[in-house]
């Protein structure tokens, strides 16, 4: 997973470990895989969101600011800076 910077902002992309199959899943940066790889936490416009690693629905987790999301190893918590 990586962030691609474009003229219109930041994009989140997933790629296989051999470099094949690059797929855009949405906008944002600071992406962080959940331990089970089902979900990605990321930063967009100063707030933290999650999205399924297959794309799809987005959940906004913070409303008072946040960045640098980091999953706990058991997947129950997300540490972040605010």
């Amino acid at each position: 997973m990586y962030t691609r910077v474009t003229g219109s902002g930041y994009e989140l992309w997933i790629v296989n470990a051999d470099g094949s199959g690059a797929t855009k899943i949405g906008g944002g940066f600071d992406p962080s895989w959940s331990p089970n790889a089902d979900t990605i936490a990321y930063t967009l416009d100063g707030e933290i969101y999650t999205i399924s690693s297959s794309g799809g629905s987005v959940t906004k987790l913070t409303t008072q600011g946040g960045d640098n999301p980091a999953w706990s190893p058991d997947g129950t918590k997300i540490a972040y800076a605010r």
Binding site: S34, T39, A41, I48, T50, T59, K60, L61, T62, D67, N68, W71, G75, T76, K77, I78, A79, Y80, A81
Partner: peptide, 21 residues
């Protein structure tokens, strides 16, 4: 916070200075 966004807990405070990452 919990992974659903609930349960926000401060681990550091203003007295700790600027903490990140």
């Amino acid at each position: 916070m919990n992974s659903d966004g609930s349960g926000n807990t401060n681990l550091t405070s203003v007295s700790d200075g600027y903490c990140s990452w």
